[in-house]
Design a protein around this nucleic acid. Structure first.
Length: 845
RNA sequence: GCCGGAGUGGCGGAAUUGGUGAUACGCGCGGCACUCAAAAUGCCGUGUCCUUCGGGACAUGUGGGUUCGACUCCCACCUCCGGCACCA
């Protein structure tokens, strides 16, 4: 058996689609000829006749090997890049690595392997895969955020933000893991527990660095208007995250201590319904207020206990409201009423002023607290036409309700009252309109090793001093021990830490915190534009030409943080004067997640798909095309091994028929004259044009790659169906050859190697150097069409009709049909509907 | 609880603005050809039920509605997925 198979093997190999060989060949050509390298304006090869287009996929975090999610992202992006190149755009399509980050460092703690080493191994494996996938990337622009030539400019941007008051240092509560003795990044805290050791996370107060993103809250909201195409839900998620709410700040006076307390409320119309007042346990005045009252000890106990309770537990949904009285009361400014004060952990220090007026009748949380502590509930808003259920708070506020128990404001509608009461407060200097945000400033410092050092020194004399620009980068030193010890591992690098103050020359210590990796990825799309510039992060000409990104592609998991941080950077850099765009990503495409057996892929579940394995077995073209064929890329899809084989089968059919067509027809390179074609030749030729039209519209603007690929499959099926009847006839040969070359052109964005190969065979040209084909409208129009005839909306017949037929002629045809007559005879036709080119509907009674 | 998205054959999915047989294309399944045989390849068939083989009835989560006509629009409900969640 073995021997027999071996004897036939060479022959068979020649007859088989062998992606390995084809893909290697084209990849070598692209690399040798720098096919996808695109020069900047000013460079000798720069083509100024073409409009620019920036196609960008989110850069990967290099860890291990790329997974299917990466393959999907880059397959989708590459299809768009290819398509736009061939539509006449000057396309920039770069790649890089988000190389700093915790997994590499955590790995180092266990193995002692330097994070740089592990990261660079992963980068090499990612790059090798990207090459084997045949993604059309300009590798001369490759960057990695862990290289000093990159993070030098991350540090430079940090200094610029600081210079313009957008970076500052302040004491703030941070997540602290008591077992690992380290500060954790928010992403490392899973359900209130440490990602690594699982212990309960505590809050501690430490000096931290922040970026003042809250200054940009309104612009981040307004500028959604500048975007062309972003998924609705991503915009909504960001909007919710920013959480802008309008209302008023109201001043309550506390007589005993002669203190003013401001509260923020969105419901100033309910001010008369405030029956108590609550401070967050962290509020700085809590201790002073309780001091000397009989509540002093109880308050102290409560505050200590809530400090020990994790944020997660405090926020858990069905937890009973807790709190204790402060032993003091405070005056409601609108009616002079003295209401009791409480401390309770349902009030958050981070939002508003950390103090609230409680209106139990009209707020669910205040209501729950009032019920638990038996406090009065006073209704001040009621529906214009009826009563309210006293067992629940009444929270609606519309025009259809009126104020009661509110003194001079009785009878006003809720929206009116908001306005009147707010201006009344302002006149009396007791409050003013105010806006509050859920968004907080961005905490960017991490007590971690594997990140860009924050370029500051602490001098005993001059305190906090920025490292001068000409001393950048502040290099990340090599260290021995990555284990967390309560401060950044960098603190142990004493040679590095001890330095001179750039200002006074005296002894100083370096800042040992590093930056959140989201900082690195907030500007990488700018560095691609001018990656080897040693004098600036990017040249203004490069940025002016290429920005903004015309199409950004990535997973929806970055819908909030990365995308919002990058938007903030773009605006800040623009304000500072280094950029001329307000929004970095004009169009965003969020791809759906690929599952396997209906579940998210994970190592623990054992249902991961290794792209490398499929690329080895079926080739990159098949694997990429399969991913695009699974369903619309916005949606998720379930990986199916047999589906991959189906696509392999399809590409094999195209490959095989191309060899046959080349052998059986002569080099009719140019499209046939459609006027000379008849019968099957014309049908096939028209089918090719139908496919051109379909694929073109499905790729853009729809991004429905699955139906585009299905259209090419239909074309290939049609070639198989008609080819044998066309060979030999000159017009027939031309039609078959044209149709097959067209199938290659159309599949090229998804299967670039095979597309190039088949096109070269039949046409002798490089497919990527040609313009994208255009469908001939004359061939899309058919001479006849199947007229659908309905009676009372039910289909009764289908008749070939002339495309140019008038409404009356169509009706004649319909009435003449035997099948129709069977349903119409003996009845009265009450209505006749004609949709030209489509159908006739006879309504009978 | 609030905000999104989605429910179509055995499976992934298609139907682009309410108008060409709902289910393109692919998978799976069945059959045929080639073969000693298998694989590979090519071709044909494949929603469900009924059928006198002409065709007929029913089918897009459920129930209503609008319309000559609804997968598509409206109302109510059910299920699933994603995000946010004591934000005053």
């Amino acid at each position: 058996m073995e021997a027999e198979t071996d004897r036939t093997a060479p022959d068979e190999a020649a007859e088989r689609y062998d992606p390995r060989e084809i893909e290697r060949r084209w990849q070598r050509i692209w690399e040798a000829e720098s096919t996808w390298v695109v020069p900047n304006p000013g460079a000798p090869e720069f083509d100024e006749s073409k409009p620019k287009n920036y196609v960008l996929e989110m850069l990967p975090y290099p860890s291990g090997e790329p997974h299917v999610g990466h393959l999907k992202c880059y397959s989708v992006g590459d299809a768009i890049a290819h398509f736009r190149r061939r539509r006449g755009y000057n396309v920039i399509h770069p790649m890089g690595y988000d190389a700093f980050g915790l997994p590499a460092e955590n790995n180092a703690i266990g193995t002692g392997q330097h994070p740089r080493e592990a990261t660079e191994q992963s980068i090499a494996s990612f790059k090798e895969q990207f090459m084997r996938w045949g993604i059309s990337l300009d590798w001369t622009r490759e960057i990695s955020s862990h290289e000093p030539s990159y993070y030098r400019w991350t540090q430079w941007i940090f200094l610029k933000l600081h210079e313009h008051g957008l970076a500052y240092r302040e004491e703030a509560p941070v997540q602290w893991c008591p077992v690992d003795a380290t500060v954790l990044a928010n992403e490392q805290v899973i359900d209130g527990h440490c990602e690594r050791c699982g212990s309960l996370v505590e809050q501690r107060k430490l000096e931290q660095w922040f970026f003042r993103i809250t200054d940009y809250a309104d612009r981040l909201l307004e500028d959604f208007g500048l975007l062309e195409s972003w998924p609705e839900h991503v915009v909504t998620m960001q909007r919710n995250w920013i959480g802008r709410s309008e209302g008023a700040e109201v001043v309550f006076h506390q007589d005993d201590l002669d203190l003013d307390f401001n509260v923020f409320t969105t419901r100033p119309d309910t001010l008369f319904g405030a029956t108590f007042f609550v401070l967050a346990p962290e509020h700085p005045d809590v201790e002073g207020l309780a001091a000397g009252t009989e509540q002093e000890q109880a308050v102290r106990d409560y505050v200590n206990e809530s400090a020990r309770t994790s944020t997660e537990d405090r926020a858990s949904e069905d937890r009973q409201k807790t709190g204790v009285p402060l032993g003091r009361s405070i005056t409601n400014p609108v009616n002079g009423e003295r209401i009791p004060m409480f401390v309770a952990d349902y009030v958050l220090m981070e939002y508003g002023t950390g103090a609230i007026m409680a209106v139990p009748a009209h707020d669910e949380r205040d209501f729950a607290f009032a019920k638990a502590f038996d406090l009065p509930i006073r209704q001040v808003v009621k529906p214009a036409d009826g009563e309210v259920n006293p067992d629940e708070p009444y929270v609606a506020h519309t025009d259809d309700e009126v104020l009661v128990n509110s003194g001079e404001f009785d009878g006003l509608s809720s929206p009116e009252a908001i306005e009147r009461i707010t201006s009344w407060l302002r006149d009396k200097d007791l409050g003013e309109p105010a806006v509050n945000y859920r968004l907080r400033d961005w905490l960017v410092s991490r007590q971690r090793y594997w990140g860009a050092p924050i370029p500051f020194v602490h001098c005993e004399k001059c305190r906090l001093v920025p490292v001068p620009e000409d001393q950048l980068p502040v290099l990340l030193p090599d260290i021995e021990d990555y284990a967390p010890k309560g401060q950044s591992p960098l603190a142990a690098a004493t040679d590095w830490v001890n330095t001179e103050c750039p200002k006074c020359g005296g002894p100083a210590k370096r800042e040992t915190d590093t930056m959140d990796t989201f900082v690195d990825s907030s500007w990488y799309f700018l560095r691609y534009l001018d990656p080897r510039n040693e004098d600036a992060p990017w040249g203004p000409d490069a940025a002016d030409y290429w920005m903004p990104v015309d199409q950004y592609i990535g997973g929806v998991e970055h819908a909030i943080l990365h995308l919002m941080y990058a938007r903030f950077f773009c605006k800040a850099l623009s304000d500072i004067g280094y950029l001329d765009v307000q929004e970095p990503f004009i169009n965003l495409f969020a791809q759906g997640m690929i599952t396997r057996d209906g579940a998210k892929m994970s190592k623990s579940r054992g249902n991961t798909v290794s792209p490398a394995e499929f690329v080895d077995r079926f080739g990159a073209d098949t694997t990429r095309t399969y991913i695009c064929f699974m369903g619309p890329p916005v949606k998720g899809g379930d990986w199916n091994d047999q589906g991959v084989e189906g696509v392999y089968h399809f590409l094999s059919r195209l490959w095989r028929v191309s060899r046959e067509v080349d052998a059986r027809t002569d080099g009719a390179a140019e499209p046939p004259e459609s006027a000379e074609l008849g019968g099957d030749a014309r049908e096939l030729y028209a089918k090719a044009h139908w496919a051109i039209d379909k694929v073109t519209r499905d790729i853009e603007p729809r991004f429905h790659f699955n139906t585009a690929i299905a259209a090419v499959m239909e074309l290939v099926n049609d070639i198989y169906k008609r080819k044998d009847g066309l060979y030999g006839d000159p017009a027939g040969d031309a039609a078959v050859r044209f149709a097959t070359a067209t199938a290659a052109e159309l599949i090229f964005p998804f299967a670039p190697h095979l597309g190039s190969d088949v096109f070269e065979l039949l046409h002798g040209e490089r497919v990527w150097e040609r313009q994208w084909p255009e469908a001939d409208p004359a061939l899309l129009r058919r001479d006849t069409f199947p007229l659908v005839v309905q009676v009372n909306g039910k289909l009764r017949d289908r008749i070939d009709a002339d495309s140019g037929a008038s409404d009356e002629e169509l009706l004649e045809l319909a009435r003449a049909s035997e099948k129709v007559r069977a349903h119409v005879d003996g009845k009265q036709v009450v209505k006749e509907i004609v949709v030209p080119g489509k159908l006739v509907n006879l309504v009978v009674r």
